[in-house]
Nucleic acid binder design. Sequence first.
DNA 1: GCCATAGAGAGAGCAGTGCTCTTGCTTTTC
DNA 2: GAAAAGCAAGAGCACTGCTCTCTCTATGGC
Lengths: 227, 227
Amino acid sequence: MSAEGVRARVRAEMTEEIKTVARRHLATDGANLSLRAVARDMGMASSAVYRYFASRDELLTALIIDAYDAVGEKVENAEKREKGGHVERLLVTAHAVREWALENPHQWALIYGSPVPGYQAPVDTVAPATRVILLIARIVQDAYEAGAIAEQAAITGGYADELARVAQQFTPGTPPRLVGAAFSAFIHLCGAVSAELFGQLNNSVDEDRRGYFEFQMRGAAAFIGLG
Amino acid sequence: MSAEGVRARVRAEMTEEIKTVARRHLATDGANLSLRAVARDMGMASSAVYRYFASRDELLTALIIDAYDAVGEKVENAEKREKGGHVERLLVTAHAVREWALENPHQWALIYGSPVPGYQAPVDTVAPATRVILLIARIVQDAYEAGAIAEQAAITGGYADELARVAQQFTPGTPPRLVGAAFSAFIHLCGAVSAELFGQLNNSVDEDRRGYFEFQMRGAAAFIGLG
DNA sequence: GCCATAGAGAGAGCAGTGCTCTTGCTTTTC
DNA sequence: GAAAAGCAAGAGCACTGCTCTCTCTATGGC
């Protein structure tokens, strides 16, 4: 392209490199990573980084969006390759989430851990954040439409209304109760992964953590009415 | 007591006051609270605080232990007052945990959120950390011994072995499969509360969050074989 | 009751942080 | 070629955790 394009490309490369270095620092410093340290690693002045990210929070936001997209893409690919039934699709999805989390514990903490103090997630993060739960919902919807799920008692109340609203938007035709069960599986999934990563399992489940996780997710599948 | 006792008591009071002020700061600054700001609030030099806590991490450890004990005590009291059946006891326990978490979101983040970078939890935190899960295990054991839980298929594998070991130590006589279900309820409980507090529910479950939580916990109870 | 001592607090100082502002320099645009 | 826009660097501000030194006071042995 034009020379303008060159500058834009260099800028994009710099932006990407800053994020890569920042991700490395995430491992040692967690969410309160040092912008100055990142700049030092890149051999540039700390003030120069502000040409690319207006603040540390903005850099964090970029990392958060990337993390959501990374886990989303990994999980979607894993599920796409699975040729088994609905339970298998659900389990392979869950295990893919866990594996990504084990590979990138600090990015997991960034998106599913305690929010960093004073940081307000902007709207840009909402869409990428929904990829995993949407995939689970789609699997459950597929199973429902295939008649693979036994009839369940309907639920009522405010939560049921909210579930109905969500169902209408993302998985029309699926009963609210079932959407609730899918959501429940997602909550259980996140809780199981976070418990493993954040140390709640230490001194009680130390060896077969994959078995632990499988047990949780089979329970979640059963609650959905699968398996 | 003697004059020595006076000094010791003043010291204990100061220690307690520092923790109280620090807990207040936790709300705005999260885990990276400022020791200097705490000192400023107390009208003393920051260096003086180091007479009471050797480092910020040591202060954090004290807050963590206090938090575990606070939620543990609240939950144990709530459960003690409940005169209903096993499901009711489990639900009142779960709701008590959630209510404490909603009242003290930053203390919840401290104990069940992402670990603070560079911080290594000392052994002193292990015992207080087990109070809630032990209470749940006791309820499940009671239900089992009362014959209130239907027979379940046993599980095998490494995780089952670990469960058996845990069962032998804390709830002897209870089948590993059932201990696993109790543990699963605890994991689900923590995940549900964290999801609510850490923002995963925003834009999908905004009104009846108690109903949402109740739904999760009834699912957990069903997995145990209750209700 | 006296006096050495241990405990408590204050202040200065070090190295680090996020972020801003000013100053030069280079690239793009007209 | 001149004007404008983008980039990088450096100094500086207010803040942080933590250490060290100094002073003062309450404590315990005699």
